[in-house]
Design a protein around this nucleic acid. Structure first.
Lengths: 141, 141
DNA sequence: GTAGCACCTGGAGTAAACTCCAGGTCAAGA
DNA sequence: TCTTGACCTGGAGTTTACTCCAGGTGCTAC
C-alpha cells in the first residue's frame, strides 16, 4: 500500500504518517527497492493503534516509548504492560474530569432552556447594584 | 482576593490568570485604585468554570466567544445556548472516542496479563518468517 | 523615605504535535 | 526518452495554550 492509500484509509495526512514513522511512533515501514514506503498489514495495525491512542489524548512521548519497548522484544513485556496500565489510568482520570464538565454543561444548557439562569442572573444583578451604588457615591461628590 | 490567593485556590498560575483575562476568557477583573486585581466572587466563578471547561478540552476560542456573548447581555442567550450545545456534543464525541481507546487498552492489558499477546506474536512470527525466507533467498545467490 | 516584595503590562519564548516546503528521486505512460 | 505526478528527506514554519521576562509601579514595614 502506498502512503497515499494509507492516508486516505485512515484519514491521516501523508506528512503525519511520515512524521509518525520518523519519530518512532511506529516501527520502520517496509520500502520498495526504490525507497518508497510500502505499508503492510503490520504497519497499518500500528497506524490504527496510534490513531486510536492519539485521539484519546495519549501523549506521543508515551507511545514512542511503547514502540521502542516493543521493538526490544519479549524481555520488555512487563514494562510495556506497566506503561499501558499507566496510560489507562490517566485516560480514566481524564474521562472522569470530562464527565464533570459534561454534567456542568448539561446543567447550564438546561438552565438556558428553562430561561432561568438563576446563578448568572443573580450575579449580574449583584454587579449592577454594586455599580449603581458606585454611581450614587460619585453623584454625591 | 489577590491574584496570588486565587492562583493558590484554583491551582492556576498568576501568569495564566492574567492571560485568561487578557484574551477575554473572562470579563475584566475588578481592580484596586492602584490598578491591582481584586478578584470577587463573580471573577472566581468564571475562573472555576474555565478551569473545568479547559480540563475537558474545550477550545479557548469557543470559551472566548461564550464570554463575549455573555458580556453583550440577554439578547445573546440563544447564541450562548447553541454554543454550549455544540461544545457538549463535541465533548460527548470525544468521550466516546476515549471509551473506544479505553476498551482497547484494557483488551491489550488483559492480553499481556494472560501472557497471550495473540495478535502481536502472530504478527511477529509472520515477520520472522518473511525475513527467514529472504535470508534463504540470499543464501541461494 | 526607602527597602523589598507582590503586582503591573507588553511582548518574547516554549512545548507539543503537527504541517509545509525546497530540492531531489522514482516510475508509469506518450 | 522525456514528462509528469507521486514520493523522498531534512529542516523550517505553524498553531494552541500557555510561560517567562524586563522594566516599571504599588504597598507595607522598618
Amino acid at each position: 500500500m502506498t502512503i497515499a492509500e494509507v492516508s486516505k484509509k485512515y484519514d491521516i495526512s501523508a506528512d503525519t504518517l511520515r512524521y509518525y514513522e520518523r519519530i518512532g511512533l511506529m516501527p520502520p515501514v517496509p520500502r520498495t527497492p526504490g525507497g518508497i514506503r510500502d505499508y503492510d498489514e503490520e504497519s497499518c495495525g500500528w497506524i490504527e493503534l496510534m490513531k486510536c491512542m492519539r485521539r484519546a489524548g495519549v501523549q506521543i512521548e508515551a507511545l514512542i516509548e511503547y514502540v521502542a519497548l516493543f521493538q526490544k522484544g519479549d524481555v520488555t513485556i512487563d514494562a510495556r504492560k506497566e506503561l499501558l496500565i499507566e496510560q489507562r489510568n490517566q485516560l480514566v482520570d481524564r474521562m472522569a474530569e470530562m464527565q464533570e464538565s459534561l454534567d456542568r454543561l448539561n446543567d447550564k444548557i438546561e438552565r438556558y432552556e428553562q430561561g432561568l439562569m438563576t446563578k448568572e442572573k443573580l450575579l449580574q444583578r449583584m454587579k449592577q447594584e454594586r455599580e449603581k451604588e458606585k454611581a450614587e457615591v460619585s453623584d454625591d461628590e
